[in-house]
């Protein structure tokens, strides 16, 4: 089987197109003979087994354990699974969580893609691209919780927005739906996570070879055609990666629901937290398992829509 290692994709941000110079795989093998790649993989593999795979297995194991007020007892019971399916609260909470996540993802996509497009396609110089991209990352300089809490003086009864609207005579009494509501929760989630999807979208857009676009234009393609037939398909992997990022994070999120949602919403994260707080780990584990299954289905679904591997 002949395999070749592809050269770096020309047109990466900041780099001029480099003439490809194909390297044969057996040439690579000559480099430091006797040094197995397994050594390179070992540290992270051990790390993952110890701190990801084993804990996951343990979560599955204790989901079958008995629970009494004085702690868990090893054993095998399907009680917690039966409870999960017979009481609607768990699946309802999972669906609520999915709904917030989906709404947030849609808004993130609508906001992040134009920003990434602007950075990659409209801003011409590398220097400006990078500085503006860094500006997008500024929110990460403060803690996640502070970013969430900052919405309170913005949207609260005596918040900036209410004061402005009252001063301009738009409303008489402070609008209360702005904070501790589904509106506030969605808005805060979008603001918190939109920056996370700008990154991957920006990189995949910036990778697009400008020569292709020029060629299309020379052949008489309209801007819309170029976008639909060249830019959009080539940037989809970035979109998918960005969406996977925030999908997984928002599904497991519960702090924002507490701080900005005012704790008025039950998401899977809060449910797990409450069971864990009184050491009912089996029930917390069952909820965690179904949350993970939900996440995996979501990720697989996104990957089915876009073949990331093929297009990267």
């Amino acid at each position: 089987m002949e395999r070749t290692v592809l050269p770096p994709h020309p047109g990466l941000i900041g780099s001029e197109a480099i003439a490809p110079e194909f390297i044969q795989e057996d040439q690579l093998k000559k480099f430091r003979p006797g040094f197995s790649a397994a050594w390179l993989v070992a540290p992270s593999a051990i790390w993952l087994v110890l701190f990801l795979v084993l804990p996951l297995i343990f979560i599955v194991v204790i989901s079958f354990w008995n629970y009494s007020l004085s702690g868990m007892v090893p054993g095998f019971t399907l009680e917690h699974y039966v409870e999960y399916f017979t009481s609607s609260i768990y699946s309802r909470t999972l669906l609520t969580t999915l709904r917030y996540t989906f709404t947030t993802m849609v808004f993130c996509l609508l906001l992040a893609y134009p920003i990434a497009y602007f950075l990659a396609m409209v801003v011409k110089t590398y220097k400006w691209q990078m500085s503006l991209f860094l500006v997008c990352m500024v929110p990460f300089w403060t803690s996640y919780l502070i970013r969430a809490i900052a919405w309170v003086p913005m949207l609260g009864r005596r918040g900036l927005l209410n004061n402005v609207m009252i001063d301009f005579g738009i409303i008489e009494k402070p609008a209360t739906f702005l904070l501790f509501s589904e509106f506030a929760l969605t808005m805060a989630l979008v603001q918190l996570y939109v920056v996370l999807c700008i990154g991957p979208m920006f990189f995949s857009l910036a990778k697009i070879d400008k020569a292709i676009i020029e060629a299309a234009r020379d052949m008489g393609a309209s801007s819309l055609q170029i976008f639909r037939q060249i830019i959009l398909p080539l940037s989809l992997p970035g979109v998918a990666i960005g969406m996977i990022f925030i999908f997984v994070m928002i599904m497991g999120e519960f702090a924002t629901a507490v701080v900005v949602g005012g704790g008025k919403f039950s998401v899977v994260g809060t449910l797990i937290n409450q069971y864990a707080a009184t050491a009912n780990y089996p029930r917390a584990a069952v909820n965690a398992i179904f949350l993970m299954i939900g996440m995996m289905i979501g990720v697989v679904f996104i990957m089915k829509l876009v073949d990331i591997r093929k297009q990267l």
Binding site: Y67, L69, S87, I89, R92, T93, T96, G263, K264, F265, S266, T270, L271, Q274, Y275, T278, N280, R283
Partner: peptide, 18 residues
């Protein structure tokens, strides 16, 4: 206190929240 019906309580409390 922690009630004997603690699990039921947590579950119903979450129904209230949602």
């Amino acid at each position: 206190s922690i009630m004997d019906e603690n699990d039921y309580l947590v579950k119903r409390w979450n129904e209230f929240l949602s």
